[in-house]
Amino acid sequence: MCTDSLHVCTVVQVPYLPSSKDQTVNVMKLLEGRSGRLADLGSGDGRLVFAASAAGFQSTGFEINSILVAYARSKACWTGVPSSQAVFVKKDFWKTDLSSYNNVTAFLAPGVMEVLGEKLLKELSDDALVIACRFPFPNWPQQSFAGFGLDQTFAYDISTVRSYLRSEAKTAVQ
């Protein structure tokens, strides 16, 4: 668990809810044309990690539920997915430096998105793409989106988000 009360609450507020097939397809649409390393925050049973690894990403699923981590690892073994393409770690992503990833996916509760946004802005490089499933980041300009309703996904270019937030801060000061 995280040491400060805000992060303890975030862990409690995010129940396991698997991505639907449509949501997974929508994430992959938003990742088209990209490559590199992908972190799936709260990876659950690993379905987004498996889809991303099949598309050529070096994918890491971060999950604190040991049963879901064991399931995803077993499925990777059964299906022959190499660990060079898909890794599942029982690790709290709040305590993990994500700076080595240029693609991040998250299907978390709306109450944690603002705090997650602060973490990602501190750690990710300008060329990073962040994809949020179902719940968008408040105050972040979307690069694009795919799907509708419960299966909607939102893509954010970190460089664009930083520029937008800087201009918003300047406007607020004036």
Rank of each mutant, 00 (worst) to 15 (best):
C2P: 08
T3R: 04
C9T: 04
V11C: 05
P15L: 09
Y16V: 08
L17V: 14
L17P: 00
P18H: 07
S19C: 09
M28F: 06
K29W: 11
G33S: 00
G36I: 00
R37K: 12
G46S: 05
G46H: 01
L48A: 11
F57R: 00
S59A: 15
S59P: 03
E63W: 02
I64N: 02
N65I: 04
V69Y: 10
A70Y: 05
C77I: 05
P82Y: 07
S83H: 08
K91Y: 06
K95E: 14
D97K: 02
D97L: 07
S99H: 01
S100I: 13
N103V: 00
N103I: 00
N103D: 01
F107C: 08
P110L: 10
G111S: 13
G117Y: 05
K119S: 05
L121N: 06
E123I: 08
E123W: 06
D126T: 03
A128P: 01
I131L: 11
A132D: 01
F135R: 08
F137T: 13
P138S: 14
Q142R: 12
Q143W: 14
Q143Y: 14
G149T: 02
D151Y: 06
F154G: 00
S159T: 04
T160R: 10
T160F: 06
S163C: 08
S163A: 14
R166P: 00
K170E: 15
K170I: 07
K170N: 03
V173R: 06
V173Y: 11
